[in-house]
């Protein structure tokens, strides 16, 4: 369907859209290699790694190393929790149970409720209770309200297309519930589980709004970056952008490679 003209017009539109998505990021990637005397915009005043070195000097730009390691640890915690809780809930949701509708509504609501409300609500709750907010407690919980709906909805999509007969076959052969999960269900859903892990890690690593009022005294990386936008006027900001973007890309690349590997192994195995 559609004529040749439509194909060309829409094809160019798509290319423009991709340029629009990637263009700005590529710009700061280039600008982060500014010379020591370079400014925030073009032209390039020489090429150097000056701003990357600058990034790791503690006095220059706040606590970059500390914020980065906190963010990575938090992202790891959120990733593991999101995977385990989402997969468990996905298994549970395969049967109707009293309250399943309400729990599903709550899952969707968790996505829709504006982040600043979650942030403020948790912050107030901790204050009223006399608990200290910290990145590993209140911010951890706040981020889960953002990552879990993605995980659970992915599990929904997976189990809607899941062929139960594999599992029944395992049961008929005498497998226990755990054995059929471990050796039948899990290998089949493995690519989606990697997807959930990717969502959990990157959404946490980049999360800002829900962490803002819940992180306590120690900043995560996005909070640190936000602070820098108001008081740093050198390309060190771009160097930071380049480093975090490359980190994100590494994680995405690892996840995609993992999925590709699983696919290949499944296609290659005689059972697949």
């Amino acid at each position: 369907m559609g004529g040749g003209v439509a194909r060309v017009v829409l094809g160019s539109f798509f290319v423009l859209f991709v340029l629009f998505l990637y263009g700005p990021t590529l710009t700061i990637l280039v600008l982060s290699f500014q010379g020591p005397d370079g400014g925030l915009t073009f032209p390039m005043n020489g090429v150097s790694l000056h701003w990357f070195a600058n990034l790791f000097e503690t006095q220059a730009v706040g606590d970059f190393g500390g914020a980065l390691s906190r963010s990575l640890m938090l992202a790891g915690m959120v990733m593991l929790t999101t995977v385990v809780v989402s997969v468990a809930a996905g298994m549970g949701f395969r049967r109707r149970f009293a309250g399943s509708g309400a729990l599903f509504t709550l899952t969707v609501a968790s996505l829709i409720v504006p982040s600043i409300l979650v942030s403020l609500g948790i912050g107030l709750l901790f204050t009223l209770m006399g608990w200290d907010t910290a990145w590993y407690s209140s911010a951890f919980g706040a981020q889960l309200t953002w990552t879990l709906p993605f995980g659970v909805l992915i599990m929904f999509a997976v189990f809607n297309r899941f062929d139960r007969s594999w599992e029944e076959a395992a049961r008929d052969q005498g497998a226990t519930a755990w054995q059929s999960f471990r050796h039948v269900v899990l290998p089949i859903i493995a690519p989606s589980v990697i997807g959930i892990a990717l969502f959990g890690f990157t959404l946490s690593y980049d999360e800002f709004a829900r962490t803002l009022l819940t992180a306590g005294s120690d900043n995560t990386l996005p909070l640190e970056i936000f602070g820098m936008t108001t008081n740093i006027t050198t390309p060190v900001l771009y160097a930071l952008g380049t480093v975090t973007t490359l980190l994100s890309f590494t994680v995405i690349g690892l996840a995609l490679a993992g999925v590709a590997l699983l696919r290949r192994r499944r296609l290659g195995s005689p059972a697949g």
């Binding site: 989402s86 609501a109 409300l117 609500g121 107030l124």
Partner: peptide, 25 residues
């Protein structure tokens, strides 16, 4: 019972970090 156990962690997270905070608000 297994179903309830499987969704219990999800319910707990939403109760503690979504429902109670909104009520607090």
């Amino acid at each position: 019972i297994a179903s309830y156990l499987q969704v219990a962690p999800l319910t707990a997270v939403f109760a503690l970090f979504l429902v109670v905070p909104i009520l607090t608000l």
